[in-house]
């Protein structure tokens, strides 16, 4: 049985000189030592064959055990000194504009309440921007929207072309598109007004929500706002409604959120603990009628406000115009 001892020695030598992978091939592979040895069994005299087989198996098991141990053994390599404070090798990432970041957060929050983002013209007819929203041409409430008009002929039915001064043009357009409630719509768009100062740019973004259904209460509007502010501004912030006036809602509200600095105690930056967030209200029956929805069966709420304003409230931006100066040093901060 010297041959087996010889095979074993050879296997041990291979094990010592090679890593796991090559040891395995050289010992148990096609032309490995054990495979070759097994083939030699036919050369062994017949009476010795059982013993030879047993011994060979025994040796094989021993080597297998060693091989297994070798596999779990830590590979030896020279130690490398790491400086964990040195910079990593990274991809150069770009930056999203603050307005896009806010839009994306808002959409995500309202998606969960079943609102979907829709899209309407940015240059639209007077009819959709005003007339259908219970604001006839002679109405002084129109003055609050410092509207840009587009040169060109009036449409006999829809009036002048305007740059939408708010996202509410989407209200009647959505009613026409959806045809039948329930409606849960979100509209986010560029809007335009003829004004510029530290809190106004002639172009800005507004977002608008519209919900129409059979039973919609003022409490539902409040609940929707609470849901939004908790997720957008944080759980410690709450909202309140104050009476206000918009022609396309009745009752109309102004929505306040507790100031992020003083959390409602009152400070220099807020009005007695509150910051104005935006406008809202229960959709006026005349607006539902404009959208061919029967106000005797359906009611709803709508809300809207400026994205830039919410960003300023969230990031302490001192001047809204910074958002549109596109200084790369500003853009790369966010």
């Amino acid at each position: 049985m010297q041959e087996i001892e010889y095979i074993k020695q050879e296997a041990l030598k291979i094990l010592a000189e090679n890593d796991f992978g090559s040891s395995y091939v050289k010992i148990f592979g096609k032309s490995g030592v054990f495979t070759q040895a097994a083939k030699k069994i036919k050369d062994v005299p017949e009476k010795n064959r059982p013993i030879f087989g047993q011994e060979l198996n025994k040796a094989k098991k021993e080597i297998e055990q060693l091989l297994l141990e070798k596999r779990t053994e830590k590979s030896t390599r020279p130690a490398i000194k790491i400086d964990v404070t040195a910079p990593g090798k990274k991809r150069e990432l770009g930056h999203l504009h603050l307005v896009s970041q806010a839009i994306s957060e808002i959409v995500e929050i309202f998606n969960k309440l079943g609102f979907t983002l829709q899209s309407y013209p940015e240059i639209d007819w007077d009819y959709y921007a005003f007339e259908s929203l219970n604001m006839p041409a002679s109405h002084p409430a129109r003055d609050e929207w410092e509207t840009f008009f587009v040169k060109g002929e009036k449409d006999p039915k829809y009036g002048n072309l305007v740059l939408t001064p708010h996202t509410s043009n989407g209200q009647v357009r959505e009613m026409e598109r959806a045809k039948k409630p329930p409606i849960r719509m979100l509209n986010i768009s560029r809007c335009y007004r003829r004004q510029i100062d530290i809190s106004h740019t002639p172009m800005f973004h507004q977002f608008e929500g519209l919900l129409i259904d059979k039973k919609v209460t003022i409490g539902d509007l409040k609940g929707t706002f609470d849901y939004f502010t908790t997720r957008f501004f944080g759980p410690e912030r709450v909202t309140r409604l104050r009476p206000h006036h918009f022609r396309f809602t009745e009752p109309s509200f102004e929505v306040d959120v507790t100031c992020g600095i003083c959390l409602g105690k009152g400070c220099r930056l807020c009005k007695a603990g509150w910051l104005e967030l935006g406008g809202a209200g229960m959709v006026h029956p005349n607006v539902l009628s404009s959208g061919k929805i029967d106000p005797k069966i359906y009611q709803g709420f709508a809300f809207g406000w400026g994205i830039e304003r919410t960003i300023a409230m969230k990031t302490n931006l001192p001047d809204i115009r910074l958002l549109y100066q596109n200084d790369i040093r500003f853009l790369e901060q966010f």
């Binding site: 309440l113 079943g114 979907t116 959806a178 409630p181 329930p182 409606i183 849960r184 919900l211 259904d213 059979k214 039973k215 919609v216 209460t217 409490g219 539902d220 409040k222 609940g223 929707t224 706002f225 609470d226 849901y227």
Partner: peptide, 10 residues
């Protein structure tokens, strides 16, 4: 009281 709108999701 605040409530979450109950109706069907369109």
């Amino acid at each position: 009281p605040s409530t979450i709108p109950q109706g069907k999701i369109p």
